[in-house]
């Protein structure tokens, strides 16, 4: 290890460089080890622990929490928790799909603005992206309030009883989720649309491609990089979202996020909460893995 090397103009030894490098990494990495990696490992350990009678942790290790998550209880099998997990995945999927559907027109529209006003439009998309999610979620209370036309219309069609708000229900959750995550898709998609090679689109049109084929064969492949970033940025956090379903979904439309929060809040069942978090973590890793495989394919195109 004592051979000399020239590292960007400096005559040094590998040992010296590593030594200095660790000096730089030290503080930050130590922090991340103590407050990120270690808590993560502790969470895994706790997910195998047992809840004591008063909500304290007892270190007798079982897989009981995981069995409970997939539905095995003292009184036989129930689908309650599986249903909540499945619903979270489904809500995340639908949210992503609607956001993608709405983002295409929006990003093409912004791209077609003249240079000066384009940044203004883009900033208009960025502002909700950075606005506090509690505010953006509860704001729907106002729009869906019984006094306003939307709820009146719904009660006119006998969808809800008269003089009640249009929440909490599944519809309100979807509204809240899509408005929450739409900018997450639009912004990366816009970056791809901006770089679009329009000559390919024109070539497809010249060759009498239908509108659908122009989209699927000339536009979609070119926007895939931005689209896949947007999809992963939406799908993963949407699965773990808990503010929107908590405020707009009520007890009837619980998602995994609410279930986790419940274990750390009212139920005080940390081991079970940790096990659900691990379940969510596994779902996250599966989605990221799918994304990585897809993005590798994209590079080949």
């Amino acid at each position: 290890m004592n051979r000399l090397l020239v590292w960007y103009g400096e005559l040094t030894t590998p040992r010296q460089l590593v030594h200095r490098g660790l000096y730089f990494l030290g503080a930050g990495m130590l922090w991340l080890m103590i407050f990120l990696v270690l808590p993560g490992l502790v969470l895994i350990v706790v997910s195998f622990a047992t809840r004591g009678a008063y909500g304290q942790l007892e270190w007798s290790f079982t897989v009981e929490n995981y069995k409970r998550l997939i539905g095995f209880t003292l009184f036989g099998w129930t689908s309650d928790y599986i249903l909540i997990v499945w619903r979270s995945v489904w809500v995340a999927f639908v949210t992503t799909a609607i956001s993608v559907f709405l983002s295409y027109p929006l990003s093409f529209f912004i791209c077609a603005r003249p240079e000066r006003s384009r940044y203004l439009w883009l900033t208009l998309v960025i502002i909700p992206f950075w606005t506090n999610m509690v505010i953006r979620t509860y704001a729907w209370f106002l729009i869906l309030a019984p006094e306003l036309p939307f709820a009146k219309l719904a009660s006119f069609f006998k969808l809800i009883p008269p003089d009640t708000p249009l929440y909490p229900n599944a519809f309100a959750v979807y509204l809240g989720m899509v408005s929450m995550f739409l900018p997450f898709v639009t912004l990366p998609l816009y970056a791809s649309v901006e770089r679009l090679d329009w000559t390919l689109v024109e070539a497809a049109q010249d060759l009498y491609a239908s509108r659908v084929r122009v989209f699927t064969q000339a536009i979609l492949p070119q926007t895939l990089p931005g689209l896949s970033v947007g999809v992963i940025l939406t799908f993963v956090p949407a699965m773990g979202m808990f503010v929107v379903p908590d405020l707009l979904g009520g007890a009837k439309y619980m998602l995994v996020g609410n279930l986790i929060q419940q274990q750390f809040g009212a139920s005080r069942d940390w081991p079970f909460g940790a096990a659900i978090s691990m379940g969510l973590m596994i779902l996250t890793m599966i989605s990221l893995q799918l994304y990585r495989r897809r993005s590798k394919e994209i590079e080949f195109v």
Partner: peptide
Amino acid sequence: IPDIILAAA
């Protein structure tokens, strides 16, 4: 990762 996992940890 979803922030709720970091929060739980």
